[in-house]
Amino acid sequence: MIAFLARRALGILPVLVCVSLFSFGFVRMLPGDPARLLAGPDATLQEVRAVRISLGLNKPLWQQYLTYIRQTLVGKLGTSARTGQPVAKVIGERFMPTFWLTVAAMAWSTVIGVALGVLAGVRRGQWQDQTSMVLAVSGISFPAFWLGLLLIDLFSVRLHWLPTGGEEGWRSFILPSFTLGVAVAAVMARFTRSAFVEVAGEDYVRTARMKGVLERRVIWKHTFRNALIPVITMAGLQFGFLLGGSIVIETVFAWPGLGRLLVDSVNYRDYPVIQAEILLFSLEFVLINLLVDVLYAVVNPEIRLQ
C-alpha cells in the first residue's frame, strides 16, 4: 500500500510540471507585453518596469520559468492589479468560503445521491426507481440560478428563516450548499444506479445469493462495494469542479468565493490573479485525482496489491 501511494505521488510530478508550464505560459502566450499585462491596465511606467525586473522578463525564457517556480514555491504570486494586495492573500481569503461551501454541498449530495441510486438499483423498474430517476433528471435540468432565487424568495424573503446571502454563520450555508448540491446529487444518483445495476448482474452476486446470504448483505457487502469505483471517480470529478467555485451560485448568494473572484479578475484583466487561479484549479484536480486513486486502492485489493 505504501509503495502504491509513493508510486502514485511520484506519478503526479510530471503533471505538476505541465501545470506550472501552462500557468507560466498563460500570460506570455497572450499578445502584448507580459510586463504590461501583469502590471495591470492602470499601471504607471515605473510599475511596469518594476514588474519586468522582478520577473526577469528581459532574461531567457528558461530563467524566467525558474524564477516563476522559485517565487511560486514561496508563495510570491505577484500583486493584484486591481487591489494592489498580494495575490496569495487575495486568493487565500476567497478559497476557504468556496472550500467549505463545496464540502457542505458534496457531503449531503453524495450521501443522498448514492442512497437514491442504490434504492433505484435495488428496486429496478419499480416506482422507487422511477421516482428517483425523475428526481435526478429534474435535478440536472433545473437551472441553479432559478432554483437559488426561488429558495431565497421562499425561505429568506417570505419566511425570514435564512439569510439571503453572504457568509455569516452556519445558517448562511444552507441555501447555497443545497442549491449547489442538487445537480451533484442527481448525477451521483444516476451513476450509482447504473454501476449498481451492472454489478448486480455479475456472477459473484449470483454466487452470494446461491449461498443463501440475506438480501440486505447481498446488496451492501457483495454489490455496493464493487459498484463504488465509478461512483468514486464521479465524486472526485464533481468535487474538483465545485472547488473551482460556482460563478452562478456565488453571484446569486453573494458568496465571497473563488468563482466571483475569477469573474471580477477577468473583467478587470487582473492577470496575476487569473494566473494564480489557473494554478490553483489545476493543483486541486491533481490532488483530488490522487485522493481518488487512494480510495480505489482501499476499495479494490487488486489495485492495492499489484
Binding site: Y204, T207, M210, K221, N226, N300, E302
Partner: peptide, 21 residues
C-alpha cells in the same frame, strides 16, 4: 435452502468469486 440443501457451482470461476473479499 440455498447452501444447506441445494448448492451450485457455476461455469466461470474467474467471475464467480467476489473480487474484493
Amino acid at each position: 435452502l440455498r447452501g444447506p440443501e441445494i448448492a451450485m457451482v457455476f461455469q466461470e470461476p474467474m467471475t464467480s468469486l467476489n473480487p474484493v473479499l
